[in-house]
Amino acid sequence: MYEKTVNIQLATVGGQGGILASSIIAQVAFDAGLDVKKREVHGMSQRGGVVTSDVRFGKQVCSPMVPQGSIDFLLAFEQAEGLRAIPNLKNGGVVITNTQTIIPPIVAIGKGTYPDNALAAIAERVKQSFTLDAMRLAEEAGSAKTVSTVMLGALSVFLDFSEEAWLKAIRSKVPKKTIEINQRAFEAGRTSVNPD
């Protein structure tokens, strides 16, 4: 399984749970006996800035950073962040976009603009583009904080790890009290995209 390195990037906004999600993906790959590396880029604040995580797994992974133009799976937790990241998508790569928009305060005060057609722009440029309303699905699962787990559910459809492997990794990483809600969120994400 996975002779060639698989490159996953999570394009998120601080506070969305992107770092936890990337560590769950890394755990799943680790549990499968693969080589795995993970890194993240985040600015100096805890919330509101751009947070990008790279997860790479395969037989042997060298650099912890996904090389430019080499993303196999882009998990965009927010529309505009998806748009920002797609130039680095590999030809034929998959994008899964949460339709949520997070308007930064700087745009609200008129010192910047937010793209009003991000989803369309992504769909236009990417053949394999999937969208889901992860915030709604997370709320339905029981907590708005499980957006990242919904996104993992959607990603899981495209990877060769068993559902139980994902749930095991999720159970090991999320707070005990939230395990059931996270399982529901994962299922919701998993059934929300259909690659065929």
Partner: peptide, 20 residues
């Protein structure tokens, strides 16, 4: 060489901010 990023898109400005 790696593929150059195609068609750079000016991203939405998202400077870090003091938390809510």
């Amino acid at each position: 060489l790696y593929p150059e990023p195609e068609g750079e898109i000016p991203g939405v400005p998202r400077p870090p901010a003091l938390c809510p």
